[in-house]
Design a protein around this nucleic acid. Structure first.
Lengths: 208, 208
DNA sequence: ATATAATCCAAGTAATTGCTCGGAAAACTC
DNA sequence: GAGTTTTCCGAGCAATTACTTGGATTATAT
């Protein structure tokens, strides 16, 4: 794979505006036109900068997508760490429920961009920042589980951890991507949390 | 979306050879180079036919991909119907287990092509043939569940059916796409079946 | 104020893209 | 075997692509 880092970072305020406009234009084009229509010339035009300005900061198209992805994933990760802090002290079922809801909400907030990035751009799912963020999220889930272990006495083979992570991650995306009312999405999210609890614990949560 | 049907079907034996060679070349290129490298000129060259011959049968590149997808999905569906017939009469856990194993095997047999088609080509997941095959597979799962319902007494909200289908489908793909030994894949598949059973039934299967 | 560095960009280039043209060869039909 | 249909194809075209060039403008440092 090619070079995915910006070749230069903005040092003055005016260039930061350009830089951000480029990343923002890429997001808008992905959202509205999909990855196939994402060309460097279109991005520059949408961003209101010359094509040469774009290449001043990014070595190629992929680097722009990578930068956009990194920004979005950072937001998700921050969100989830916040959610984890909030979930501490809750009982296992409430914790799972809360984390799931926050994850769906975080993705749903930018669902059109995420759908294109994570499901249609060949290299994005393998991007280090994506792999790392997924690992961080899985680690958070693990900590929820471990804190619950005391209360629940849960053994879990490594394969199960991986499988549950994969299933939960994909289901979160599917639920976040759905074009339904937020009310319906919340219902589905709650059911998803319950199914996850079933997978992890082997029985239904005690709803008290 | 554009026209995705072949503009003409082969009527003589020699042209069927060309037709198949084109579809086969598309599969090989997707497998080895990914969707971005899939160009009509490359396909024709790989297939050993002139570019004009390709356009004799297909109106555009997308139609070739659609034809390939249809062939692969048909194979999967046939496989799963066979698996369903074999699963009849088995107890619920054995049934789920068997169906899951067959599904993973069916996808794993062409994993590189499926990974590109289903995860990287923008229009493939929405292709009617894909949507319909997924619906057919979900219906099969439903029939397994309904036959099991007598033995298990299972109520299940509609949302759960959808969620479990989504999670199972995605997990089947993930397991099928993994580059691991077949032994390891079989282990993961068994665990996946167990987690699915947990989701659907709410407790572990009685392993007897 | 001058020098240096940062930022900007329109015009253009070489390569590649999907696809058409015009017609030749081979296979069926009668 | 004449006529019709099917199959084949390479040269080439118009459009688009990612990206470079060469230099102008603006900010910063001293």
């Amino acid at each position: 794979m090619i070079d995915l880092k910006p070749k230069k970072l903005p040092k003055q305020a005016r260039s930061r505006v350009s830089f951000d406009a480029i990343v923002g234009a890429a997001a808008r084009l992905l959202r509205e036109r999909g990855y196939e229509a994402l060309t460097t010339n279109h991005i520059a035009e949408q961003a209101g900068v010359g094509i040469a300005t774009l290449y001043e900061f990014f070595p190629n198209k992929e680097a722009i997508v990578a930068e956009l992805t990194a920004r979005l994933m950072a937001k998700v990760e921050a969100n989830m760490e916040e959610a984890f802090a909030e979930a501490r002290g809750l009982d296992p079922w409430a914790g799972v429920s809360h984390m799931t809801a926050r994850a769906v909400a975080a993705m749903a907030a930018e669902r059109d961009v995420f759908r294109v990035l994570l499901r249609q751009v060949p290299f994005v799912p393998q991007l280090p920042v994506v792999v790392e963020t997924r690992a961080a999220l899985a680690a958070l889930s693990q900590r929820v589980r471990i804190e619950a272990a005391g209360a629940l006495d849960l053994p879990m083979p490594e394969d199960d951890v991986w499988l549950i992570s994969e299933m939960l991650y994909n289901a979160i995306l599917e639920v976040a991507f759905l074009e339904v009312s937020e009310r319906k999405r919340a219902e589905l999210t709650k059911e998803l949390a319950r199914l996850t609890y079933r997978m992890a614990v082997g029985r239904d949560p005690e709803t008290n």
